[in-house]
Amino acid sequence: MSDTSINTRACSTEHEAQFGDYFALLKPRVMTLVVFTAFVGLLAAPAPVHPFIGFCAILFIAIGGGASGALNMWYDADIDAVMKRTQRRPIPAGKVTEGEAFAIGIALSAFAVVFLGLATNWVAAGLLAFTIFFYVVIYTMWLKRWTPQNIVIGGAAGAFPPMIGWAVATGGISVESVLMFCLTFMWTPPHFWALALFMRKDYDNADVPMLTVTHGRPATRLHILVYTALLAVLAVAAGFTQIGGPVYLAVAITLNALFLRGAIRIWRRDEDMAEADNYLAERKFFKLSLLYLFAHFGAILIEAGIDKLGGLA
């Protein structure tokens, strides 16, 4: 066998899609948040759910979330190819074709919605279908490339999972599930704007109208502060509702004080300072934002467990 044929075969093998490439299409990091918040919504609901049905419900919700991620990568392949943060995704890396990503996304979307409806109820399935539609069509195809408010409005897509979990258990929507929706919805803008600040060149190069691109970084810092202050009020106030309690309040007061302090530090910075220290404050704020949401929903989960144990006593 000639050296040329060996090299050609090695190159084709190098670019063959592996299972991990197809799994990466589903955005597993995002899926983790979807699964966790849906799980909290399911267990925080007042109606009991059989463990097997609950497991199936969370599985189908996860698949639906992954399906929307695949469709997002299919449509955003051109943007992903020029952004440093996304260049290694399966499509721009040449591991998976756009057609494959689209087919996987559509097939998994239909599978997840239909089987969630059959396993639980059609209210939950309808919410999952609307979530996929909102993320792919409203956010990815329309808002993301059209308005700097893309993250604000599009954040609704990531806020629906706890409502879906609640609907799995109750068959409906309540004030409590809407509160969990609002918590995630208000958290999304400061979380992503902090990312946009220290990944600023990515959005500039991709010509995505992120707030940092259209209004500048000082305006983005002010928006982060305003949304963080509004989020703090909402998060602490939720502690006095049925999903709250002493554990939740302790977590909410502590984390929102830290989150607000971080937002104030970012707001007070200027561009010279930001360039000099490589946006360390923004990176710290972004990392804290990840802990923020998981901790709040973890506290809701603990409160739900306390309530259920109290009901058994």
Rank of each mutant, 00 (worst) to 15 (best):
I306V: 13
G69D: 00
T241A: 10
V152G: 05
L127C: 03
H296Y: 10
E176I: 02
F133P: 02
Y292K: 08
N7V: 14
N72I: 06
G171V: 03
V168E: 01
Q87K: 14
H223G: 12
F133E: 04
F240W: 11
G298D: 08
L43P: 07
A299H: 00
A77S: 13
N205F: 10
D21E: 10
R265A: 09
I164V: 08
H50K: 14
A219N: 10
S5M: 14
L211P: 04
L128R: 01
M199R: 14
K27A: 07
F286Y: 07
R200C: 11
F111G: 04
L183E: 00
R283W: 02
G69A: 04
Q242N: 15
A169H: 02
P46N: 09
A125L: 06
I53A: 11
S12Y: 13
A45I: 05
A169S: 06
F192H: 04
A252L: 06
L293W: 11
H191D: 01
P148M: 07
T220K: 06
L230A: 12
V82P: 03
Y248H: 10
D204R: 15
G298T: 07
S174D: 04
V208K: 01
D3K: 13
S12H: 13
Y248T: 05
K27W: 06
G64A: 04
K201N: 08
I79C: 03
A281P: 09
L291M: 14
A112C: 05
T214A: 05
W187L: 02
A107W: 10
A313Y: 12
Y227P: 02
M141T: 04
P209M: 03
P161C: 10
V233W: 09
G64D: 02
D80W: 00
V226F: 13
I173A: 06
R85E: 06
V247Y: 05
M31G: 05
G172F: 01
H191C: 02
L128M: 07
D207P: 07
M199V: 12
A47G: 12
T37D: 08
A263T: 02
A159W: 02
A70G: 08
F130K: 09
T228I: 08
Y139W: 10
Q18D: 12
K95N: 04
S5D: 13
D277K: 14
Y227L: 08
T86L: 11
T188I: 11
P162H: 07
W74N: 07
K201M: 07
F52M: 15
A67T: 04
D272L: 15
F111Y: 09
P246D: 12
E16C: 14
E275A: 15
L309S: 12
R9S: 14
L301P: 00
F23G: 12
A157V: 03
F39A: 12
L288I: 08
W187G: 00
V213W: 03
Y292G: 06
A93M: 09
F160T: 03
T140C: 06
I132N: 06
A196V: 05
G99K: 10
R200H: 14
Q18H: 13
V168P: 00
V233Y: 07
A93S: 12
A206G: 01
V113E: 02
R145L: 04
T37V: 12
L143Y: 00
A252T: 04
W142C: 08
